[in-house]
Every structure is written in structure tokens, then in C-alpha cells.
Design a protein around this nucleic acid. Structure first.
Lengths: 142, 142
DNA sequence: TGCTTGACTTCGAGTGAGTCGAAGATGTTA
DNA sequence: TAACATCTTCGACTCACTCGAAGTCAAGCA
């Protein structure tokens, strides 16, 4: 099964521009037909799926390109790929922790406004400065 | 207590450039001294803390500017600010869910490489295509 | 007094990861 | 043959910084 840019972009819910961008940057290997058009196959799908995950993990295009190159090189790079994944797993943990803090921050804010709107606490919008208090952050700050 | 750009940037662990950028974009109110230099106070600290949290939540500079403007306007905008926070709380929930999936994806990858390196499963690096398998993503995909 | 230092100012350019649109080539269909 | 859809490359735009250059200003010192 082969795919054109349009087909693979629809299948993977990416824009055609992004798919071309990834091939141009060397993250996503692709062949060309006799008219120089990009052709993709099922392996491209699995590459793209991986790229999407790694991007969501905040890994840069350049780092993904390097990982991709390691994969191409074959078994000799297994250990390097393992190290790559281990270090990015740590980053994923940190991001999870941060996401938890941010949820609790947003919940705190929403509750704060509910307390004011329902009259449980007085409005702390600062009128003297014509400058509403931004309701100080409590997400891990002192 | 007042602060210069340098002082506030050090205190908040931001670059001076970023602090100036925020004031220029209207997110961070600041006064000027007779030499046109930016001066900040303790309220700026609390603003900046809020801005940092909202930015980490993925809220755009423009949206934060709008929220900031609502705060300035006073109590009449309480309800709008409440709605703003509620909608961004939902986004924070989504990001937390995604962060969880990404951690489990990275854990899966690391385990996969460990299994290969310790000989529990065969190496699936694809030699025929001179193209290592990217080890298909399992984070919520079909 | 002049000179250096250092912190400030604005402005314009660069970056990363897309995002968009234009201009041109090719293939299919009416 | 013309219209069209789809592809190609290329250059410009966006956002949120990030950086550096050039100029202003006050303080400290020979």
C-alpha cells in the first residue's frame, strides 16, 4: 500500500505542508515517483506515528532527525537509541508533574472566582490601582 | 519595594528581553522613571507569576493580554474572567491526560529497548530497508 | 573635566516549527 | 484542447521569544 502526500496527511491528521516539511527536514524518509512526487508506504505511517508522539513529548525536529538517522544505521545504534529514549522519558515525567501543577493552579483560580461570585469571599479586584489583582499563583511557588 | 528590569528578571528567572517583551505587548503593566526606564513593584511580581503560569498552560500572549485588560477594568469583568479560567481549566485537563499518555509511551519505548538489549525479544531494527523500525507508537492510537 | 563602566533604551534580525499562498509542472477527464 | 486536480518548490508570515547593535544616561574615578 502506497500513499501520496494528500492521502497520508489525511490518514494521519496532519496538513500536507507539515508532511512535506518533515520529509524536507529528513525526519520522514520517502521515495519519489518518476515525476518527483513523494510516495509513502505503511512504514511511513509508523514513522509518522512515532514522530507525532516524540513531537508531543516536546522533542525537537533536529533531535527526532538524529534519532531517525540512528534507526537507519541499524542494530549498532541500539544502545544510543535506548539512551535517547531514557533521557526523554525523564523529560516526560517532568512534563507530567508540571501538567498536574497547572491543573491544580487552574482549579484554584476557578474556585477563587466562584467564591467571589457566590459571595463567600470579598472581591479582591484592586480598584485603587485600577488594576485587578491577578490572584497570585500558588502552583509550586513560595 | 521597586525593581529594575534586571532585578525583576533575576528574581523571576526570566531574561531581561522577555520582561521587556511582556511590557511592550501590554501583558505586564509598568511605570517609567524620568529617564524612561521601566520600574516594577511587588504587584508586578505577582502579575509576572500569573503570566508564567498562564503561559505554561499554553495560553497565548494575546489571550493573557486580554485577561490582563479585564483585570484592569475592575469588578464588572469578574464573570468574564471566571469564564476565561474555566475554559483554560478544561485545556489544562486535556494536557494532563496527554502528558499521562506520553509518559506511558516513553516507558513503553524504554522497556522495548531493554527487552532487546537483554535478549528477551529479538532486535526488530529493519535491515532490509536499511531503515530501523521506529517501534510503533502505542499511545492511544489504534 | 573627560573617560570608563554599566545598566538601561529601542529597533531590527534570527530561530523553531510550522502555516500559508503563489507559480509552475504533470496527469486525468470532458 | 481545455479545465481540473494534484503535485512540486519557493518565499513570506506567525508566535514567542532570543539576540545583538547602537544609542542614552548617571555614577565613579584620574
Amino acid at each position: 500500500m502506497t500513499y501520496t502526500v494528500k492521502q497520508i496527511s489525511e490518514k494521519m491528521e496532519l496538513t500536507e505542508h507539515t508532511v512535506r516539511f518533515y520529509t524536507d527536514k529528513g525526519l520522514l524518509p520517502c521515495k519519489r515517483d518518476k515525476n518527483n512526487r513523494r510516495i509513502f508506504d505503511d512504514e511511513s505511517i509508523s514513522w509518522l506515528r512515532t514522530i507525532q508522539c516524540l513531537r508531543k513529548c516536546g522533542i525537537s525536529i533536529e533531535d527526532i532527525r538524529a534519532y531517525s538517522a540512528l534507526c537507519m544505521e541499524g542494530s549498532s545504534t541500539l544502545k544510543a537509541r535506548y539512551e535517547f529514549m531514557k533521557s526523554h522519558r525523564e523529560l516526560a515525567f517532568k512534563r507530567l508533574e508540571e501538567a498536574r501543577e497547572l491543573v491544580s493552579y487552574m482549579e484554584h483560580k476557578v474556585r477563587h472566582y466562584e467564591d467571589i461570585l457566590e459571595g463567600r469571599v470579598p472581591d479582591d479586584t484592586n480598584p485603587s490601582a485600577k488594576n485587578g489583582s491577578p490572584h497570585i499563583c500558588t502552583c509550586g511557588d513560595p
